[in-house]
Nucleic acid binder design. Structure first.
Lengths: 213, 213
DNA sequence: AAAACCCTACGTCTAAAAGCGTATGGGATA
DNA sequence: TATCCCATACGCTTTTAGACGTAGGGTTTT
């Protein structure tokens, strides 16, 4: 295997640096470049094309899904591995759609990472075992052929405010809308996210990065 | 400075290993021991007393606050530094109460960590700048001298169910209580956590580790 | 023994959320 | 052009949550 440079995109510096130290000794890693978020990554990649990217999902400014979509428009054969704390369906389905070749949980070992790299740079995929379990499960309970998610901009905005503790009335005032409009957005949010109440909406928002804990 | 062993307590293996790689070269670090959660840590510390502990807060089985309280009962002079993703008041106040000597955010640099270690092992404290800001702010808005938090066992249980999306009625059935009792617990939860509605409760629960994302 | 705290439980009232349906104008898209 | 999706908005009903208050029986702490 030829050696190549690796990009680490994650907003937590300690994690980036630590992972960098783990990767540096690997024989096929020639260089490591760090980015704190998707936007910084898109800037740094110009004239500096990596062989592999480890991409966090939840990041400020620009998250990993957006960055993945954008960078693959320009470099369609780039190997991207998503990094996440959570084996959450919403995450890996979106990242797979975005074009990521692998999905690793942050509680993996460095041996797993090494195996992942070998697979991914040779054109294959790699998914943490927990993710594979999740994928199989989600295939089994696929009663509805309809896709549920993908919120509209307004829905995300309303959801974000809900997580901040605002009531529909308050959100309406904030966004200059009728209270009944916000009611409707909330109704659609419950439907799309498959939640049955506010608690479910908040959990969804955090998992999908719309709200931060 | 004499050299000493360092414990890393965090449920994310990659983070542990990475931080370990960063710490290993430091001259005063003689050995690194990893634990995946508070319980494992308490087992491993027997006959293996470290000079310093980096303790994650959100962990399964036993979280960082509980582990800190317990280990300090036995080794009151142990230096413990909390590690967290979030500069959240609930976190650092609890960890400070528990007896931690420092609080670092996971987006710190290894230089910060080194400074932190120097301070803490010499008996001083260390807090990330964001934390210090938060502490100052919280002092400024201290209208109420009353302590708000510390939930009872029942309250935590109810809160946990709320995060799972259960209504009060359903929780009552689940725990064999009157619906009105659960109403009351929920009311007290709002009061103690300073939330104004369900969304706030869920956010609190996640930050404090009562619910997992 | 007294005080403090916890868990349980009830009553009443208002506000908010949730579950339905309908509808219109605008923009993108097929 | 016709179709689809989005954002906007309203009506109606039921369920749930939130804001007060009170109170007994139990345990733990002082």
């Amino acid at each position: 295997m030829e050696s190549f440079s690796v990009f680490l995109v994650d907003d937590h510096k300690l994690f980036r640096e630590g992972l960098g130290m783990l990767l540096k000794p690997l024989p096929f890693v020639s260089e490591i470049v760090e980015s704190a978020n998707g936007e910084e990554f898109l800037r740094q990649i110009e004239g500096h094309k990596p062989g592999l990217v480890f991409m966090d999902i939840n990041m400020p400014v620009m998250n990993g899904m957006e960055a993945t979509v954008k960078v693959l428009q320009k470099y369609p054969d780039l190997a991207i591995v998503a990094l996440s704390m959570f084996a959450e369906e919403e995450y890996y389905t979106r990242m797979i759609e975005a074009g990521a070749r692998g999905f690793m949980l942050k509680n993996s070992s460095i041996q797993d990472v090494e195996e992942c790299i070998r697979n991914v740079v040779s054109g294959h995929n790699y998914f943490s075992p927990e993710i594979l379990d999740g994928i199989l499960k989600s295939i089994n309970r696929r009663q509805v052929p309809v896709r549920k998610n993908e919120l509209t901009g307004r829905e995300e905005e309303v959801l974000y405010r809900i997580c901040q503790g605002y009531s529909n009335q308050e959100i309406a005032a904030l966004l200059n809308l009728s209270k009944r409009t916000v009611d409707k957005h909330r109704e659609n949010l419950l439907l799309k996210t498959g939640s049955k109440n506010t608690a479910g909406l908040v959990m969804f928002a955090i998992r999908s990065g719309i709200a931060e804990v």
